[in-house]
Amino acid sequence: MTQELPVVQSSRREVSAPIAFEHKLAQHNLTLRAAGVETLQVNVGKLCNQVCKHCHVDAGPKRTEVMTGETAEQVLTALRRFRIPVLDITGGAPELNPSFRHLVAEARAVGARVMVRHNLTVMFEPGQEDLPEFFREHGVEVVSSLPYFLEQQTDAQRGHGVFEKSIAALRRLNAVGYGVGDGLILNLVYNPVGAFLPPAQSLIETDFKRELLARHGVTFDHLYTITNMPIRRFLDYLRRSGNEERYMQKLVAAFNPGTVAGLMCRTLVSVDWTGRLYDCDFNQMLDLGIDSSLPQTIADFDPALFAVRPIITGAHCFGCTAGAGSSCGGAVA
């Protein structure tokens, strides 16, 4: 007889799925535990100059949650003390945090590889005009969202006029040496403009490279495909458009056990603007804190304690295991 499996109930914040994520893992004899801490992903706040329709952070110009200088120092202390190899800075638009440049400079000074989730258009905000030069000076790896190589799709997701500004920003980054093969890394992020899964990463990367060069003379290094997470603003869209159930069925049907070993949560610890710790940025937005037996804040962080921790999961985790998988570094399988 087939065992009845519990259905994850929908709430305002949490999406529902036809089967609980942990049961899906169990069906494949899998468990999800960390495998070390290679990356500290720091969300320095929800303030952003854009209001993207899919944003899992609910970020925007009116948000006031911004990491203080004191918490940023605690992040730097952890980086220095434990020699975490990678600092991945995200937001919101992280550049709008007053501590951003200090955080980048100090992290680079202790030898960390620094990635910034840079939305491109923020460099046209007052006081941000020199961002390309700042990135170059500190050897920052730039990761920028551009959901499509055409204006219509990009503006539909990220707001009117964003595509044109994004292209102007990419040209500026190219002009200072980013994404032109000189060692300054400029990676782009594709995510679907709607309730469907991303195409094969290598295929769409080829399209982006060809089209952005031909249409706009722009070059970049790699394209990451990221699946839209069914939380926050994208979940609101799914519900408004009547796509929630179908999208979750799609994610569950596309569950790929081969993605689990490479999930970003296995090697990453996420820090929120107050210094609290999570298994990933998505759990952060759902207030799903790190395992309760562990220290809960960056001030008490110790990678030795986090290295093999159990990962806290929910129905949204199907977003990272569908198809070729999804992570902050794109496809994982």
Binding site: Y148, Q153, P192, F196, P198, P199, A200, L203, D207
Partner: peptide, 10 residues
Amino acid sequence: SQSCLESGSN
């Protein structure tokens, strides 16, 4: 239609 979108067609 879904297959086309998910294979990168516009």
